[in-house]
Design a protein around this nucleic acid. Sequence first.
DNA 1: GATTTAATAT
DNA 2: AATATTAAAT
Length: 245
Amino acid sequence: MDIPSMVMHEEADDNFIIEMLANGALHVVERPFGGDVFFRIRQCVIREHLNKLESECSTDGKKKVTMSKTKRNSNIQLHENGTGFAKKKSLEWTDELHSNFLRVSHQLAREGRCFPKDILVGMGVPGLTRMQVASHLQNCRRGGLKFTENQGLPSASRNGSSNSSQEEVNSKRCGHTPLVVTSFENQKERIKFNDGTLSGNEVEKDKDLMNNQSLIGSSSRKNYGFQNHGQVGSKRCKKGSNPFA
DNA sequence: GATTTAATAT
DNA sequence: AATATTAAAT
């Protein structure tokens, strides 16, 4: 029987636990996780560390060892959040990254194909994910939050089926609405930042995000230069219902 | 099934 | 506020 050191199961009753432990599992966890599961697991890890240190320090294996705080801290890697797990890094959209994003988005918008996936490919940044681009795009589109109905250009339709503008507006559905960028109509290739400076025509190649991500932490406001296109439908799409009825 | 988007969560 | 994740849609 091949048993992992930690076993997760929906019905971890006594019999199951006994069987797993008897076959080499170190820990059995019942799903779904809740409460202090990871806290307890972390304690196991720390205990292992302590035992290891203890055996290293003691000569005969019996003597209890008192370790200084610094000694402990140097041997047990805890994280500042106290969980034993590092906080997941989140991407920071630097000016450089954002200008790359804008450059690609702007071009794609002119072609009428401004989707997260296209943007991602166009940006060519290793490690950057489609979801990150989509999230950034959403943030840029919203650009302040206040909407005026029918403000901005009507969205281009991917299947090109609609003809009247009102129908086009009402044709909006999840998964179908490309972005139309209108902020840069008269700016050629240059991109204006919120500080008033213009980017150069060439955008420097971005770093590999997989290996060089930075933590969020700056509280500085960012104002991405997208124009708001107006919210078309306010209701969240629900299965089996017409959100525009 | 992949992708997009609005909404929500962190 | 900025970014990530989820849920609904096609």
